[in-house]
């Protein structure tokens, strides 16, 4: 299985009305990759994510999961494919009327027939993985920004998704917690074979975890394939090197 294209994006263009965000995106994510989407603010990373996860129909092009056309599929097939995804939104997107435990439990209750006691165990374990053991009964409004982010990751991992898509997991985290989150992401890939798509500006994290990457350019409105970020740092396109070295090259 390893190496075979797991997610394939072909000639994808995204727009808001007449405003073109990105066009002609072509890339493939292999199973077990940590695929990094880089780019400056407003270049369209979140928009790309919305096209990948079914929130916003792209203006043109295809997204395929294991060869199956995502946007061409019927609503219920798309729902089935979506169930394989775990998603962390840029703002956490925790449901404010539910406690952390309920936030993580909801997908489990919805999609597994597990008894409540077992759900509670899983919830506690996932919260422990992101370092939030003991905060089960807190409401999102009672958490700090970084804690919300981590809780959002716990919810994204609730169903042991095949594919984890995370929008800026480390923004707002302290360096040690960010590091722990990187380790967790790598571990999920190692142990559970999870394919991970990370949207990130965090250079340290990009270099530490990325196995493949693309760079979305806000000026030309299209992507630059960059491969392994560590190699891109030395051999890549000048624009990407500029980005990865914080403008010093």
């Amino acid at each position: 299985m390893a190496g075979r294209a797991h997610i394939e994006v072909g000639n994808l263009s995204m727009a808001y009305g007449k405003f073109l965000v990105q066009r002609d995106l072509n890339f493939a994510v292999s199973k077990g990759d940590v695929f990094v989407i880089m780019g400056g603010n407003g270049c369209g990373k979140t928009t790309l994510m919305r096209a990948l996860i079914g929130l916003q129909r792209p203006a043109a092009g295809t997204v395929r999961y294991d060869g199956e056309d995502f946007w061409g599929a019927a609503e219920e097939d798309r729902a089935r494919m979506k169930r394989r995804l775990g998603i962390l939104f840029q703002g956490g997107a925790l449901w404010s009327s539910l406690t952390l435990a309920e936030n993580v439990a909801l997908p489990l209750a919805e999609y597994t027939g597990l008894p409540p006691a077992r759900v509670a165990e899983i919830v506690s374990f996932k919260l422990a993985l992101v370092g939030l053991a003991g905060f089960e009964d807190f409401y999102p409004s009672e958490l700090s920004g970084g804690m919300k982010k981590r809780a959002g990751l716990a919810r994204a991992m609730a169903l042991d998704p095949d594919i984890l898509i995370v929008d800026e997991p480390s923004s707002g985290l302290d360096p040690l917690t960010a590091r722990r989150l990187d380790d967790l992401i790598l571990e999920l890939r190692e142990s559970l074979g999870t394919t991970i798509i990370v949207i990130s500006h965090d250079l340290a994290s990009i270099l530490a975890i990325g196995s493949d990457s693309i760079y979305l350019d806000a000026d030309t409105h299209t992507m630059i394939a960059t491969g392994n970020p560590r190699e891109a740092l030395t051999h890549g396109d000048p624009k990407v090197r500029h980005f990865l070295t914080r403008g010093s090259e």
Binding site: A128, L129, L132, G134, R180, L184, E187, E190, S191
Partner: peptide, 12 residues
């Protein structure tokens, strides 16, 4: 390793 990670931050 995952068990160790879950235990890394003690319960608050």
């Amino acid at each position: 390793r995952l068990l160790a990670m879950a235990a890394a931050v003690p319960e608050q």
